[in-house]
Each structure stands twice: as C-alpha cells, then as structure tokens.
Amino acid sequence: MEVTTLLVLGAAGGALRGLLDVYIRFLDWQADRRAHRRSPPEQADPPPRFADHFDPVGDSVAAVVHSAMGAGAAVLFGTTGQISGAYAALVVGISAPVILTQLGRVQSVSEALTGPPATEAAIGAGPPGTEAAPGTVPSPAAPPEPPGPAGTVGTGEVGS
C-alpha cells in the first residue's frame, strides 16, 4: 500500500476517533437531560446544555492531534509490513493513541530480563555524608528504627 493511502486512511481513522469522542459526550449530555426530566418539578434548575459537555476548541484540537497520530501510526505500521489493507490502516488510525502509548511503555528484552540499568550514582550511593571508596561495593544502610508509642522514636520504651 502506498504511503499517501496510509496517511489518508490513518488520518481518517484519527478523525473517526474524534467523532467517537463527540458521540460519547453527546450520550453523556443525553443521560443528564433524562435525569433532569425525571427530577422533581420543584427543583428549578435549567436543563443541562450540550456546551457543558463539549469544549469546541479543546475537542477540535484533540481531533486534529488524533488524526496526525493516526496518520503517523498507519504509515509506521504499513511501511514496516505490520499491516496490509485499508481496513487495518483505518483501525490503526482509530486506535493510534492507545497503540503509541503502549509502544512507549515497551521494555527492551534485556531490560525486562535483568531489570533497568543501574546508574553510577545509584551504585555508589550510600547514606548521606558517606562516600564509597573507588572500586568497592557499599554496604547497605541499616533500616531506620520504627517509631515507638506516642510518637517517640527509637527509645524502645513502652509508653504509659
């Protein structure tokens, strides 16, 4: 599939994501209106307005960002052979925010097996005011004593 086709389909998927967000806000507004209609007549509140559930500026910017993310994700997945076909490019565009968030959280295989790499500061770190000699492994610090009764620390005495 051509890159321009992937761009268009991914962006269309992102725009559909924006429309889905507007639809969800519409359903929330509709539910609030129904709840208002069921409320007692002596409750003189005006019915909820759609503008209370929809922010035209913020939601429009979000739709543009979703379209850009959808276009980028569709090109990324399409040019690397991860997807093929128009439907797949559209679905990747719709789900681009979730996919890209998950890709940002992926660990490398070695990091998953051995844990995150240790930094020099973490290796040589000891209690404040102590420095480890070069080439030595610092010993772990003793854990702090738990507070005693009535807020006393480290006395070992039981309060009365």
Rank of each mutant, 00 (worst) to 15 (best):
Q107H: 02
A132K: 05
T80H: 03
E120K: 09
V8S: 07
P127H: 05
L20P: 01
Q30Y: 05
T80W: 06
V137H: 04
V64F: 15
A62Y: 10
V98A: 05
T80R: 12
A125G: 14
P41T: 06
V98R: 00
V158Q: 07
A63I: 09
P116E: 13
V22R: 02
V106Y: 00
G78D: 00
S67Y: 10
A51P: 07
Y23N: 03
Y23A: 07
A141R: 02
P41N: 06
G10P: 05
L19M: 12
A86W: 12
M1I: 08
E131I: 06
E145R: 15
L27G: 00
A96W: 12
H36R: 08
Q30K: 15
E120L: 10
A68C: 07
D28G: 13
G70A: 05
G115P: 03
A31R: 14
V75C: 09
A118V: 10
H66Y: 15
V65H: 11
A35K: 10
A63R: 11
L90Q: 04
A68E: 15
E42A: 13
P149F: 14
V106D: 01
V64G: 12
G148S: 06
T152S: 10
A88K: 07
A89S: 02
L9K: 00
P146N: 04
L7E: 06
V137W: 11
Y23G: 10
D52I: 10
F26T: 11
Q102F: 09
A133H: 08
A132F: 01
L90K: 00
L6D: 01
Q30A: 07
G72S: 01
G159C: 14
A86Y: 08
S95R: 11
G10V: 01
V57F: 15
P47M: 01
T80K: 07
P97M: 04
R105N: 05
T5V: 04
G135P: 03
H66V: 00
T79D: 04
Q107E: 06
G14C: 01
E145W: 11
E2Y: 04
G154M: 08
R25M: 04
E111R: 02
H36P: 01
V65C: 06
W29D: 13
Q82C: 01
V61P: 07
R34E: 14
G14I: 03
P128N: 15
Q82D: 07
T155A: 03
R49K: 15
G58A: 14
L90C: 07
V137F: 11
L76R: 05
V22P: 13
L7M: 02
P143I: 08
A63M: 14
Q107W: 03
